[in-house]
């Protein structure tokens, strides 16, 4: 019988070889993205349109924006245009990640490359890390510029009043906000691998997510049952805190009635990181479980 003697791997070797996979997947994603430039331009335009629709309605109705702001922010002053622009952009960003990850495995399955991918010795987590790092970087850059353009068009005063620090924090909180979405979307993607109906499920979820994260209205105005889902959805925390930093609306903890939280944004950020760990583990476990189940039965190429 053949006997292969495997070398003991040091940590640095282990790290280096996984980094090769992460960089390889990142590069491949960039090369594919370059083939679909129209997708990128759509990602710029859609959030601007989604911001324009409610704002134009407000302006057409002729209601004083300060009055709406007071109503939205529970007496605090803030920019209603900024509130909606940031809500739309973060929502679109979360959707981009949702689509990227929940359709990832299914798309690979349908093109026929999933088996080739899973037959390689690359660890699943390094493939996901490569894919996630590209998805976050690419979508956050687009979303950041789309937010700036939206603010320039609809909330110019607010944009010029924001300091560099809040702008930097906006970027940081956006990146952190993407992390739980990756785990959550990977979890959905794993379900899709089993139940196949990817596009209808994600389509349904994107509108549901838009409702529960309070894209156009504060979550305090949502019915109680919907508010429960809002609190459990990580993007609600991210969008509320980014709005608090930039548009002057109350942070998430205050919306929940917790008034003396100390560092509300920091606490919320830690909660978002907690969500990221939770959904990351759930996504990975569910995928591994379904992968095993599928391998036991029909195999990964059946779609």
């Amino acid at each position: 019988m053949i006997q292969i003697i495997e070398k003991q791997e040091s940590f640095s070797y282990f790290f280096k070889k996984n980094l090769i996979v992460v960089k390889g997947v990142f590069r491949q994603q960039w090369q594919i993205a370059k083939s679909y430039l129209s997708n990128t331009s759509i990602a710029f335009i859609v959030p601007i349109v989604m911001t324009a629709l409610p704002l134009l309605l407000i302006r057409a109705v002729g209601v004083d924006e300060q009055l709406i702001a007071a109503n939205f922010f529970g007496g605090h002053s803030g920019s209603i245009s900024g509130f909606i622009a940031i809500g739309s952009n973060i929502w679109m960003l979360m959707l981009a990640i949702l689509w990227d990850f929940s359709t990832y495995l299914r798309d690979e399955q349908m093109t026929g490359t999933l088996e080739t991918l899973l037959m390689s010795p690359a660890k699943r987590y390094s493939i996901i890390a490569g894919r996630a790092s590209f998805s976050i970087l690419f979508n956050v850059i687009i979303s950041f510029f789309a937010t700036i353009i939206s603010l320039l068009i609809f909330a110019r005063d607010m944009l010029f009043e924001i300091g560099l620090l809040p702008l930097f924090l906006l970027l940081v909180l956006t990146v952190i906000g993407c992390l739980p979405m990756i785990g959550l979307s990977y979890f959905i993607g794993a379900l899709v691998l089993k139940f196949k109906e990817v596009y209808s499920l994600v389509n349904l979820l994107q509108w549901f997510f838009g409702l529960i994260m309070g894209v156009y209205v504060p979550i305090t105005s949502l019915p109680l049952i919907v508010r429960v889902f809002s609190i459990m959805f990580p993007a609600t925390w991210s969008v509320s805190d980014i709005r608090a930093i930039t548009a002057g609306s109350p942070p998430m903890l205050l919306l929940l009635g917790i008034k003396n939280a100390g560092f509300p944004i920091l606490i919320s950020t830690l909660i978002v990181i907690g969500f990221a760990i939770f959904w990351g583990i759930i996504g990975f476990v569910v995928f591994s479980k379904y992968e095993l189940k599928i391998k036991r039965n029909e195999g990964l190429s059946k779609y």
């Binding site: 390889g24 590069r27 491949q28 090369q31 690359a122």
Partner: peptide, 16 residues
């Protein structure tokens, strides 16, 4: 959507 070279480069990375 990739070139042959890009494909081979990508798969090589999956084999570390």
């Amino acid at each position: 959507k990739l070139t042959g070279y890009q494909n081979l480069e990508y798969f090589a990375s999956l084999y570390h």
